[in-house]
Design a protein around this nucleic acid. Structure first.
Lengths: 188, 188
DNA sequence: GTTGCATGTGAGTACTCAATCACTCACACT
DNA sequence: AGTGTGAGTGATTGAGTACTCACATGCAAC
């Protein structure tokens, strides 16, 4: 027998990544204030006490989750843009929008962004993370698409409208007003 | 002396209105989960116990606050539209946007809307209130402006972008990315 | 002025939450 | 086998939390 990987303990770094991944699902439903560290621990399959060995406190945990979300969003935009390199700004923005629509077909990622935006008001650390996340994302979208201010702004405005539609689950309501708001918004 | 109003006790209905008005400021900072009923009581100048005589529970209180916000938003849009009656859809939408910008120069109203949107995910009663609020608002904007689906959708997309900008306090950050996001967004 | 009812509160209850700590166990290395 | 270190947990704590209830007070009508 080879000395194949058989240990039952993970490294702290692996655990941290597991927590970041699974905590998205936990925070998605009830946000920063409404989600307990016990729920996060359960989602990651560890004890609540151990959460505090991996992250200094609940705020640091949430901030790490938010940063993780922004990284994933950017990765998805990059993948989308890669398929339309050299095209017109409109085409690149459309490809990015499409990639993003795929990314958030699982709603949790988007919901965490929404909750982070709300928590921003009272939690300075979260505000810094969200600002930094949008700063990088806006500049990336501008650079990769070559679009002007107007186009980039519209890209994010539509993204925000998307957040509204998803949070209300407007897709589940068939009415003129939901059709107006969701018109042309891709979802998979 | 006339029998002028001199009583020190309010009617329950008056108190309820006071609570709705002042609770906006309380909920604005930390949202549904993060705000305590004690804070709401303090803001209204009554005891925490009495909050529960005026509203059946915290959820009903928050829902009432959210509905109150939507009423105020609609009133402000109506006032804006009144000043541009008979003009082109673009002009009416612009007047509405201007009225809304004035309304939310005090950020609390907008922040409550944002927090309500977030709470929507896990609180069905809040979801219903938010859906009903947007349903009426979308139809009002459509009817009063005479704009088509595309214009109405953009009106709300810009509104959502506005929420993002205010929640992050992007106006306080002077950088290319904030200038891109806030370009053309009125604030007073 | 006393009766009846609505307004309003102080002092709780039962519970949950973030955070801590003493502790056990797994593993690599000698 | 022995030892040092990092992974991981059960039990607990102290500070809130939503919500309740017995009781007080204001006020109008008779």
């Amino acid at each position: 027998m080879q000395p194949e990987r058989q240990r039952q303990l993970s490294t702290a770094e692996e655990r941290r990544e597991t927590v970041l991944r699974t905590a998205i699902g936990a925070f998605a439903a009830r946000g920063y204030f409404g989600t307990t560290t016990t729920e996060v621990a359960k989602a990651a399959g560890i004890s609540q006490a151990y959460v505090y060995r991996l992250f200094t406190d609940k705020e640091a945990l949430f901030v790490a989750v938010v940063e993780h979300c922004f990284v994933r969003v950017r990765a998805s935009l990059e993948a989308g843009a890669a398929g339309a390199r050299g095209s017109s700004p409109e085409a690149v923005l459309s490809a990015m929008g499409d990639a993003y629509a795929h990314l958030i077909s699982d709603k949790d990622l988007m919901l965490v962004q929404l909750h982070a935006q709300a928590a921003t008001v009272s939690e300075p650390a979260v505000r810094e993370a969200v600002r930094a996340g949008y700063a990088r994302t806006v500049e990336y979208v501008r650079g990769a698409s070559g679009g002007d201010d107007r186009q980039v702004q519209e890209f994010f405005a539509v993204g925000m409208l998307c957040h509204l539609v998803v949070s209300m689950d407007a897709g589940a309501v068939d009415a003129p007003w939901t059709r107006t708001l969701t018109a042309g918004i891709r979802h998979y």
